[in-house]
Amino acid sequence: MIRFDRVSKRYPPGLDALSDLSFEVTEREMVIVSGHSGAGKSTLLKLIAAVEKPTGGAVLVGGQNVGGLARSALPFLRRRIGMVFQDQKLLFDRSVFDNVMLPLSIAGFPPKDAAMRVRAALDKVGLASREKALPVMLSGGEQQRLAIARAVVNRPSLLLADEPTAHLDSETAADVARIFHEFHHVGVTLLIATYANELFPGARPLQLDHGRLVS
């Protein structure tokens, strides 16, 4: 499903975030990307969604070289991928419901079906009763779960999550990890950048060190 072929990423003015990186992720796999801060975890995930483009090598998603996609093709790639961002990127002037609705509006879902899907996604992450709330009224764990609901409402077959349990107490973190396991069980391919390997037993680890794969 995902193949990195000798990928490198250099940010201006000359910092190598990833160097000569090759690996493969097959369908329905759960992979955790670990490594120190600055190891290149976020960069790796961004390359998959073509938020950044590789400066060397090829990133293939579903057989498609996403680094070479035209700007106009990017939206359609991203709609197939669910993303939980490191900084969550919630819209604070919109309700919980509207935050989760956004990907569906973007994808052009009929409003009625969309509303049902939003409620299903909120239910899945345990926020069904908070749909009218604004994100600021939520706790850290609830905000994280909101970000997850928004990432999965489109029912993507690939889910990328960037440090989804950082800044959460251990109980809440375990709660969030459980949600990811559930998605794994229903056949979603998962790439999770995290320091907390122990929360994801059974996942294949990809260890990064200064932009290179170890092990």
Partner: peptide, 15 residues
């Protein structure tokens, strides 16, 4: 923020 998030979630320029 909304423009950025929309782009990351797959919104076209038109949207």
């Amino acid at each position: 923020a909304e423009i950025e998030v929309s782009q990351l979630l797959g919104a076209t320029d038109g949207f």
